[in-house]
Design a protein around this nucleic acid. Structure first.
Length: 293
DNA sequence: ATGCCATCAAGGTGATGA
């Protein structure tokens, strides 16, 4: 089965491109970030028409994550346990959603940007990554053989080769040691980078800024990742970054990142009335309510 | 060619992104 992650930078703006990409590439499960759509405004119908079920989480025009699947979609979870809030008033933002697709548990994750090193968003980013690490560690403690994919825009470049010019990032976020340590802590919890072995650098990126001809000049950043549990790593047989999708009018500034997994992926017909899969149980993250743990 | 900032809600601009 084929699993991908993609920061689409507005799903409604790019819905035709996303559907065409899914159909062209035969992707079974797509983790989407930056939908920039509330649940009510999420474009469900195009995915249903293409044979995908939808789980989405959006509470404002910012952030927003989703998982679409044509191989089953169940056990939907909204948000991370003990997720830190941000802002005034504090809000637990729409940055995480998980679901079981076939026998793989897939998470779509949009890690906070951090903005500037001295900005509150930066410490929020580090706390958010710690909450992600804790969730991943807990899941593997409960079942060390679980097939788990942590997919998304991590907003961290873990290695110097993951940006086109380290000098350009002096004093900036995404490359600082605390951010890299927080990313590595997720890896150390038992989640390996499934893509890098198949797409080694240098010069291999997943994001290119719209400004300053960054894409044609090949000046990008590797900040989108598919991290997998040991069992998923063992089942992964290929991976790539689809930089072709960054080309042309109306492209997202991020490229899709793809893994191929040697697991059965029977296409599941969308059950009548089950185009949208709502979360099972309560995680306390519904409809913008704020809970401080 | 890959091409010179884009998205949202709200409003005619500011916040956000990286």
């Amino acid at each position: 089965m084929r699993i991908a992650t993609w920061n689409v930078n507005s799903l409604r703006t790019r819905i035709d491109r996303v559907i065409a990409w899914l159909e062209r590439t035969g992707t079974d499960v797509l983790a989407i970030q930056e939908t920039k759509a509330t649940d009510a405004k999420f474009p469900v119908e195009p995915f249903t028409q293409a044979g995908y079920q939808v789980a989405r989480h959006g509470i404002s025009q910012w952030n927003g994550v989703a998982i679409v699947s044509r191989v089953g979609l169940a056990e939907v979870e909204i948000g991370l346990p003990r997720c830190p809030p941000f802002g005034d008033p504090p809000v637990i933002e729409a940055r995480a959603i998980g679901a079981r697709c076939g026998d793989v548990t897939v998470w779509s994750l949009y890690v906070p940007n951090g903005r500037e090193i001295d900005h509150p968003h930066y410490s929020y980013k580090l706390e958010w990554l710690a909450a992600l690490r804790d969730m991943g560690a807990a899941r593997l403690a409960a079942d060390s053989t679980a097939l788990i994919a942590l997919c998304g825009d991590f907003n961290v470049a873990p290695q110097d080769d993951d940006v086109w010019d380290m000098a350009a990032f002096e004093g900036r976020t995404h490359v600082t040691q605390p951010e890299r340590d927080a990313f590595q802590a997720v890896v150390d919890a038992g989640f390996a980078d499934l893509v890098r072995p198949y797409a080694p650098g240098p010069g291999v990126y997943t994001f290119w800024d719209y400004q300053q001809l960054r894409f044609p000049k090949k000046e990008g950043m590797r900040i989108d990742f598919l991290l997998g549990s040991a069992a998923l790593q063992a089942a992964t047989v290929g991976a790539h970054i689809d930089r072709e999708e960054r080309k042309g009018k109306g492209a997202s500034d991020h490229a899709p990142v793809v893994i191929d997994v040697d697991r059965p992926a029977p296409i599941v017909a969308v059950p009548p009335g089950a185009a949208i899969v709502e979360p099972t149980g309560s995680t306390g993250h519904g409809e913008g309510d704020v809970q401080l743990w």
